[in-house]
C-alpha cells in the first residue's frame, strides 16, 4: 500500500466520520465540528490526488484546497454566529 493511498483512506474516513456526526448529533457546535472534519477529509483527499509520482505535483487541487479552507473558515464563522443568534432568540 502506497503512502498516498493511506492518506486518501484517512481522508475518506474523516469524511465519513464528519458526515455521521453532522447527521446524528443534535447540538449545533457538534454539527459545525462535524462539517469541519468532513471538509478536512475532502482537503486531504484533494491534496493527495495532486501528488505526481515523483514528478511535479498538480497545482490545481492545491489552489482548490486553499480556496476551500478560506470558504470553510467563513462558513464556520457564519454557522457559529447563526447558532449564537438562535440561542439568543430561544
Amino acid at each position: 500500500m502506497m503512502v498516498a493511498d493511506l492518506y486518501a483512506l484517512v481522508g475518506v474516513v474523516l469524511f465519513v466520520m464528519g458526515l455521521s456526526a453532522l447527521i446524528l448529533r443534535s447540538r449545533d457546535l457538534q454539527r459545525i465540528l462535524g462539517l469541519n472534519i468532513m471538509g478536512t477529509g475532502v482537503f486531504m483527499l484533494l491534496v493527495t490526488s495532486a501528488h505526481g509520482d515523483g514528478q511535479a505535483a498538480d497545482p490545481v487541487p492545491h489552489a482548490m484546497v486553499l480556496t476551500g479552507i478560506v470558504v470553510a473558515v467563513s462558513a464556520t464563522a457564519f454557522a457559529l454566529a447563526l447558532s449564537l443568534a438562535r440561542e439568543r432568540h430561544k
Binding site: V12, V13, F15, V16, M17, L19, S20, I23, L45
Partner: peptide, 8 residues
Amino acid sequence: AVALGALI
C-alpha cells in the same frame, strides 16, 4: 456514510 465513502 460508509457507502458514500466507498464511492468517493
